[in-house]
Design a binder for these strands. Sequence first.
DNA 1: CGTAGATATCGATGATTGTCGATATGTGGC
DNA 2: GCCACATATCGACAATCATCGATATCTACG
Lengths: 112, 112
Amino acid sequence: MTPVETVACCSPLSQDPLSREVAERIAPLLKALADPVRLRLLSLVASHADGEACVCDLNDAFDLSQPTISHHLKVLHEVGLLDREKRGVWVYYRVNAAALSDLGALLGRVAG
Amino acid sequence: MTPVETVACCSPLSQDPLSREVAERIAPLLKALADPVRLRLLSLVASHADGEACVCDLNDAFDLSQPTISHHLKVLHEVGLLDREKRGVWVYYRVNAAALSDLGALLGRVAG
DNA sequence: CGTAGATATCGATGATTGTCGATATGTGGC
DNA sequence: GCCACATATCGACAATCATCGATATCTACG
């Protein structure tokens, strides 16, 4: 079961104690989010027109090397928070909105 | 402005691009959450009767040394996710539910 | 006071991580 | 085929982190 699948199936944090197994599957998701650059990347992609953004746009938004941005995008993609689509020479990312909202619900939202 | 205050004042991730400053204030909150032990600790405290838990109970729930649990509780306390109260020899922690729900809203809320 | 028990702090250590420059891979145009 | 360009991977390095044992601090009770 992937982190993203796990987060979709659980009652909120405050309702029942998390098992060790579930906690260990969810933590990587939060770890992926727990970096200022990745937070901004996710936010940039999410708020971009058409809900997708080209890597070329993202690179320009940071004072970081291209490999570094690529690395952060990979981290977000691997945990399932960003979907990846290659069109020609360019790569477009879009957020997995369901995963993000499931994660939000797990943390603190009042009702699903 | 503390991480917890920051998280309460922002529009959701997907609505507007996060500024560098805001992202850097929110990331520590997520970093505090992004550990399986701390996730379980938070969940244990949150789902405990009366919404609070004594450290002595928490220690027993893990196969980790007492200093290690103490360290994790400190991390959660320092970012404002856990409140701390000493009563006699014992220390009780309770979750800052508002902070947790603000964080959830920041991540995944559907509409403002 | 002195002792016992609960919790926190300290210092060390192995593992993980963010970043970079160099380089590889893939794509479209000539 | 070759070149320019967009993106990814690799290897290295400094910084951060989770964990531990040892020890300090605090509190209640004789």
